[in-house]
C-alpha cells in the first residue's frame, strides 16, 4: 500500500525535524558547533528502549530519555567549557565517538552490536500506538509541542541571551551574564529534545543498534540544519522534509536495492557541499556558520 510508504516517510521526517530543531538550538542560537549531537539521539533511544523493556510506562520512558540525554548535554558542556573554535567542534566529535564506543562495548547493558530488537510500540494511558498512522499522529503532536516550546524559548529574552553568547557579544559579558552557565543550558536544552527524538525513533523502528548513531547520520542532520539555515526553526523543519523526502524518489526509479543506500548518502553529501559553496546561509538562515 502506497500510503503506508508515505506515512513511514512522514514519521521519519517528523522525528528528524525534532532532531534538527534541537541541533539548531545549540548551533544556530547558542553558537556551539556540536558535531556529536547524534550521541544525544542515541542516548535517548537506548534509554527509552531499555526502560520500556523493564516495564517502565512509556510516557515516563520518553521523559527519562530527554532528561538522561540532557545530563550528557551537561557533561559535554563541562568537558568542552574551556574550548572554542576548532578545538570545540573536534572535541564534540570525539565525544560522539566515545558514546558510540560505549554503546558498542558495554554489551551487558546495550547488547553491543546485536542491538535491541522488539522495542514495543507505546501504550499511552490506553492509547496503544500499534499502527504507523497513529504513531504519526502521536509523533506529530510531540513535534508540535516541542517546536512550540523551542519557539517560545528562542523568541524570549532568554533566547536573546543565548544568541548573545553565540555572537560573542561583549555586551553579554558586560551585562554580567554567566556565559558559561548559558552554554551549559543551551546544550542541555538541545540534548533534551534530541533525546526525546531518540525515544520516538526507537519505538517506531523497533530495533536500534550502535551503527545507527555514528558518522553517516551526523552528516544527515548537519545537512538538514545547514540547508535549512542556522537560527531558523522553520528552516530546519522544511529542510527535513526536503532532505529526507527527496531521496525517497529514488525508490520509484528502478534501481537495485544495493544502489539505493549509497546513492542516498551521496545525495546528502552533494546537497551539503552545494549549499556550503553557494548558499551557506541555507534557505532561511539568519546568520553565517562560524
Amino acid at each position: 500500500m502506497l500510503s503506508a510508504f508515505f506515512i513511514h516517510i512522514a514519521v521519519i521526517i517528523v522525528i528528524y525535524a525534532i532532531l534538527a530543531v534541537s541541533l539548531n538550538v545549540a548551533v544556530g542560537y547558542t553558537g556551539l558547533l556540536n558535531l556529536g549531537h547524534i550521541a544525544f539521539f542515541g542516548i535517548g533511544a537506548y534509554t527509552s528502549a531499555l526502560l520500556t523493556k523493564n516495564d517502565v510506562p512509556y510516557i515516563m520512558a520518553l521523559l527519562a530519555s530527554g532528561i538522561f540525554a540532557s545530563v550528557f548535554g551537561w557533561l559535554l558542556a563541562k568537558i568542552t567549557s574551556r574550548l572554542k573554535g576548532d578545538y570545540l567542534s573536534l572535541a564534540t566529535l570525539g565525544f560522539g565517538f566515545v558514546v558510540y564506543a560505549v554503546m558498542l562495548n558495554w554489551s551487558k547493558l546495550t547488547r553491543g552490536p546485536l542491538g535491541i530488537a522488539g522495542i514495543e510500540k507505546p501504550n499511552i494511558f490506553g492509547w496503544y500506538l500499534k499502527g504507523s498512522g497513529s504513531y504519526l499522529i502521536f509523533a506529530s503532536i510531540i513535534a508540535a509541542i516541542i517546536i512550540f516550546i523551542i519557539y517560545k524559548i528562542v523568541k524570549s529574552r532568554y533566547g536573546r541571551l543565548l544568541e548573545a553568547v553565540r555572537d560573542d557579544a561583549i555586551g553579554a559579558q558586560a551585562l554580567g551574564k554567566n556565559i558559561y552557565k548559558l552554554k551549559i543550558q543551551g546544550l542541555m536544552i538541545s540534548a533534551f529534545f534530541a533525546g526525546i527524538a531518540g525515544s520516538l525513533y526507537a519505538h517506531y523502528i523497533s530495533y536500534i543498534d550502535p551503527s545507527t548513531f555514528f558518522i553517516s547520520d551526523i552528516i544527515v542532520i548537519f545537512t538538514i540544519v545547514i540547508v535549512g539555515g542556522l537560527a531558523s526553526l522553520r528552516g530546519s523543519v522544511i529542510s527535513a522534509i526536503i532532505i529526507l523526502g527527496l531521496p525517497e524518489m529514488l525508490r520509484f526509479v528502478d534501481l537495485p536495492s544495493s544502489m539505493i543506500g549509497p546513492m542516498r548518502q551521496m545525495m546528502f553529501a552533494v546537497i551539503l557541499i552545494l549549499i556550503l559553496m553557494f548558499k551557506p546561509r541555507g534557505l532561511f538562515g539568519k546568520i553565517d556558520l562560524e
Binding site: L33, G85, D86, S89, I215, S216, I218, I219, F222, T223, I226, M259, G261, P262, M263, Q265, M266, F268, A269, V270, L272, I273, L276, M277, P280, L289, E290
Partner: peptide, 30 residues
C-alpha cells in the same frame, strides 16, 4: 579553494570534508 575564497571558516571546511568523505566512500561502494 572556492570555499576559502568565500572566507569560509575552518569549521565549514571540516563539514565539507565530511561530506566529501561520505560522497567518495559511497561512490566506491556504488
Amino acid at each position: 579553494l572556492p570555499l576559502k575564497k568565500r572566507k569560509s571558516s575552518s569549521v565549514i571546511l571540516l563539514i565539507a570534508s565530511l561530506a566529501l568523505m561520505a560522497f567518495f566512500d559511497n561512490l566506491m561502494q556504488l
